[in-house]
Design a protein around this nucleic acid. Structure first.
Lengths: 198, 198
DNA sequence: TTTCAATGAAACGGAATCGTCTCGTTCGAG
DNA sequence: CTCGAACGAGACGATTCCGTTTCATTGAAA
């Protein structure tokens, strides 16, 4: 694959046919991955799903791993902190976003496959770890600020508190197969955030 | 498979060769599953790993799914509550057990594969859900008792608190690929358990 | 309009796995 | 000791997927 765009840094310089193929194929990878998982993922199934020749896939990627990596890179899972509001309100807002993400996004569909793939391939693990850490950093930053302003006790471990806030959502989604709606957010916050912060 | 033991309710009535085969094969399933995951799991690889003919496997199980189900059933992941000690000490002890389980047991090795498989097969999901719920119930029971004795506020949601205590361990193991030793237990408890209970 | 790179379809040989089957051996039960 | 069930080994035809190759078509760009 001669990737002019990567060399010049401008995706738009690509032949539009290439761009279209890439887009369609990567989406098919995510769909297929959510259905069959990483181990059972095949190039042929992806090609069929994308309505594309196998050769087109092999022209652009060396194999399954790189294909999956690229597909993951297209995943968007933005979490943002509201600018205003009390600490509690802002934390609730973040947890709500996480709950929605884990319940109904493309990301959520692929999450179990991603976790499994990360266990077996270091490249996928690196990506998944970074991907997760980005999301966690948003909440950790919010908590860290609150510690500085004194809204949270100085003894607070922001990483651990963030994990305790998000952990229940993952646990219920992955281990208990329970529905996790955004309504769980205030309940978690009330249960976990120190009373002094409410 | 004509399972005399199941019919009579006594495993020991089986031909010892059958018993031995079953044991060896099911262990090989768990080992293989931890290495390659559910999607890439093959009967041939299991047979090779177990040092057994494929025919022996097909004599006892109809296919991969039932085989994996049986293998999971052999998983042991006991979590117990110490009889004595303060609430905090007992909770810490439980969380320590969970941390060890998630870090270094056969269960931990298979956990990502189990999560992935549960996503694709209802039977596996049922098993996994029940398996997880059993473990959670131990901690929930402990917290529920503490609510009744007044050690925890009456407003406590025992399930949610339990999930907040265990969640960080799962999150770090599955999403961040961080090492999770038992040392994390007291930190979690101090961060999450209400101050009134310490 | 002309040119040519990218494409979809399909065929290829090779490898892996499927689930079934046979056969000679092993070993527990009576 | 004898008998028969369970075993391992492996051959089998079928199937799927691999990664490569060919080829006629499409469509972007000059």
């Amino acid at each position: 694959m001669v990737d002019v765009a990567a060399a010049s840094g401008a995706v738009s310089e690509l032949d539009p046919r290439v761009e279209r193929s890439r887009r369609i194929i990567l989406q098919a990878v995510l769909d297929e991955l959510g259905e069959v998982g990483y181990g059972a993922l095949t190039i042929e199934a992806i090609a069929a799903r994308a309505g594309v020749g196998k050769s087109t896939i092999y022209r652009h990627w060396p194999g399954k791993l790189e294909l999956v990596e690229d597909a993951f890179r297209t995943l968007k899972a933005p979490v943002t902190v509201p600018e205003h509001g009390t600490l509690r309100d802002r934390v609730v807002a973040v947890i709500e976003q996480v709950a929605c993400l884990v319940e109904q996004s493309t990301y959520s569909t692929c999450m179990p496959a991603l976790i499994d793939a990360a266990e077996r391939d270091p490249k996928v693990r690196d990506f998944h770890t970074r991907f997760s850490a980005e999301r966690r950093a948003v909440l950790v930053g919010l908590l860290r600020d609150a510690i500085e302003t004194g809204e949270l006790p100085a003894t607070t471990d922001p990483e651990l508190l963030a994990d305790a806030l998000v952990g229940p959502i993952l646990l219920r989604r992955l281990m208990l197969a329970e529905p996790v709606g955004p309504a769980i957010a205030p309940a978690i916050v009330d249960q976990v955030l120190p009373d002094t912060a409410k």
